[in-house]
Design a protein around this nucleic acid. Structure first.
Length: 423
RNA sequence: GUGGGUGUAGCUCAGUUGGUUAGAGCACCAGGUUGUGGCCCUGGGGGUCAUGGGUUCGAGUCCCUUCACCCACCCCA
C-alpha cells in the first residue's frame, strides 16, 4: 500500500514530536551535566561488526537484523543497537589515544526485525551512553545514576533497578558448568522451553515463570557464589556506591543480559505496569568488547534506554509533557490589498523573534478571528483600511478581550511588551 | 518466529435474521447582510465499509487469503 508505512514503524506527528523533543532535550542537557559528549554514527554498518560485536549466537544477530546487500555486494546492516557502532567509531578514530576516559552519548533510531507490539517496534529509538577507559566501580555507579537521574527528571516514579554481576571470562564459564552439572539430572522435569535453554544459555532458565521450574531451581548455584575475587569485590563496591547515592536497587541473580559482550555489572530498569514490555532500559559493563573488536585492551560500560517505552511509561503514569503550540501574534486583514502590508508586518515581527502567522485561506475577518482562537494566538493585529490611513493598526488581546489602536511604528514594541507581561 | 483478538469517515462509534443512493457525534470548511472568537442554527467536503477472492438474485453483515494493529510467548528497548 502506497499510503501505508512499513510494519513496525511510526510517524511522529505534530503534537507528539514535541514530546520527543522534550525527552531528547532532557537527555542532552543531562549528559552535559555529567560530562558526556554526543557521538553520531551511521544508521548502517558492515554486517560483521554486529556479528562479532553483539555475538553471532544472540537472537538479535540470528534473526532480528535488517541485513541487505548494497549495489557493490557489500553486506550492510541497519544498526540493531548502539554499542557496537560506538566501539567501532572509537577504534576507527583512535579515541583511546586521547584523554581517558572517553564519555559518549547517542540518541537515535535502531532497527530490529521482530513481531511488533506496543512498545516494540522495528524502528525504535534509544538514548544511550558509553564510557571507555576505566574499570572503576564508581564509574559503574555514575552510569547507573545517570540513567536513574534521567527518568527522575522526566517524572517517572516507582521504577525498579535490577542489578547483577555476570562475572568475567575467567569465572563465568566455571559458574556455567557448575549450573549445568547441577541441572543435568533434573533436566527432564523442566518445561520444554527451559530444556532448550540448557545448552544455549543455561542462566536464562532462572527467568522462567513456570512455578515448577522455579521450584526445581531452589538450591541451584547462584552466580554470586561463583564470582572470582576481583569480580566479587568490584560488584560489592558498585553496590556500596549506589547506596551512597541513595539509589535503591534489587539484587537480581536471574538477570542475564541478552548480548554476549557483557561482563561484571549488568542492570535493567523496569517500569511496572507496562505489560510485557516493562523493561525500559538496561546496560552493563563490557570490558572485553573493545579488544574483541580488534582494539587495545580497554574496559567499557554503557546503557541503552528505549525512548518509546519511556514515553509509554510516562503516559501510563499520567505524566503530561507540556506541548508548546500556538503563536504570539496572528495578523488579520480586512479589505482588499492588505496582503503586502500583512507580509511586511509578519517579517518585522519575526525579525524581533515574535512568533507570528496569518491566514492563508482568504478567510473573512470573522473566520480569521476564529482561526486565531483555535490556533491559538495571544494577540491579533487587525490591518484595516480605516486605521491604516491614519498609520495605525488594531491590536486585540484574545485572553482579556481588550483591544486598542496602536501606531504602525509602535506595533513591534507593543507586542514585545505584551509578551513580557504574560511571559 | 509461535498462538489468540481486532479492522466501518481525521477521531469515537452505530449499522436490526444478508435487502434500495452506508449513518451519528466530534473535528474541518462556508454561511447566518455590510470590520471581530467561544454558544446556537443552516449547509458543505470527506468512506473503493483494511485488502483480494468466494457463497448469494443481492454482502459492511457469511467463508477464505493477504495486510496492519493489539495481547501473550520468544526476545529485548
Amino acid at each position: 500500500m502506497l499510503t501505508q508505512r512499513p510494519r513496525g514503524t511510526e510517524d511522529i506527528l505534530p503534537g507528539n514530536s514535541e514530546k520527543w523533543q522534550h525527552v531528547e532535550e532532557v537527555a542532552r542537557s543531562l549528559c552535559r551535566l555529567y560530562g558526556y559528549r554526543e557521538i553520531r554514527t551511521p544508521i548502517f554498518e558492515h554486517t560483521e561488526l554486529f556479528q562479532r560485536g553483539v555475538g553471532d549466537t544472540t537472537d538479535i544477530v540470528e534473526k532480528e537484523m535488517y541485513t541487505f546487500l548494497d549495489r557493490s555486494e557489500r553486506s550492510l546492516t541497519l544498526r540493531p543497537e548502539g554499542t557496537a557502532p560506538v566501539v567501532r567509531a572509537f577504534l576507527e578514530h583512535r579515541l583511546y589515544s586521547g584523554m581517558l576516559p572517553v564519555k559518549l552519548f547517542y540518541i537515535g533510531p535502531m532497527f530490529r526485525y521482530g513481531r511488533p507490539q506496543a512498545g516494540r517496534l522495528r524502528q525504535f529509538h534509544q538514548f544511550g551512553v558509553e564510557v571507555f577507559g576505566s574499570r572503576e566501580p564508581s564509574l559503574d555507579a555514575e552510569v547507573i545514576a545517570l540513567a536513574m537521574d534521567y527518568y527522575r527528571r522526566l517524572g517517572l516514579e516507582g521504577l525498579e533497578l535490577h542489578i547483577n554481576s555476570v562475572g568475567c571470562p575467567s569465572c563465568r564459564p566455571i559458574h556455567r558448568e557448575k549450573l549445568k552439572s547441577y541441572l543435568k539430572d533434573k533436566l527432564e522435569a523442566f518445561c520444554p522451553t527451559c530444556q532448550g535453554r540448557f545448552e544455549r544459555n543455561p542462566l536464562r532458565i532462572f527467568d522462567c515463570k513456570n512455578p515448577k521450574c522455579q521450584e526445581l531451581l531452589k538450591g541451584a548455584p547462584t552466580i554470586t557464589s561463583s564470582l572470582c575475587p576481583d569480580c566479587s569485590q568490584h560488584f560489592q563496591e558498585v553496590l556500596r556506591y549506589l547506596e551512597e547515592l541513595n539509589i535503591t536497587y534489587l539484587l537480581d541473580e536471574c538477570l542475564v543480559r541478552g548480548l554476549d559482550y557483557y561482563t561484571n555489572t549488568a542492570f535493567e530498569i523496569i517500569a511496572p505496569g507496562l505489560g510485557a514490555q516493562s523493561s525500559i532500559g538496561g546496560g552493563g559493563r563490557y570490558d572485553g568488547l573493545v579488544e574483541a573488536c580488534g582494539g587495545p585492551s580497554m574496559p567499557g560500560i554503557g546503557f541503552g534506554l528505549g525512548l518509546e517505552r519511556t514515553l509509554l511509561a510516562l503516559e501510563a503514569q499520567n505524566k503530561k509533557i507540556k506541548v508548546e503550540d500556538g503563536v504570539e501574534v496572528l495578523v488579520a486583514t480586512v479589505g482588499e490589498g492588505m496582503e503586502t502590508k500583512a507580509l511586511r508586518l509578519l517579517s518585522l515581527l519575526r525579525e524581533h523573534n515574535i512568533p507570528a502567522d496569518k491566514d492563508y485561506l482568504g478567510r473573512s475577518l470573522k473566520a480569521q478571528m476564529k482561526y486565531a482562537h483555535r490556533y491559538p494566538a495571544r494577540l491579533v493585529i487587525i490591518l484595516g483600511e480605516e486605521e491604516l490611513e491614519r498609520g495605525r493598526v488594531t491590536v486585540k488581546n484574545l485572553k482579556t478581550g481588550d483591544q486598542e489602536e496602536v501606531s504602525w511604528d509602535d506595533v513591534v514594541d507593543f507586542c514585545l511588551r505584551a509578551k513580557e507581561c504574560e511571559g
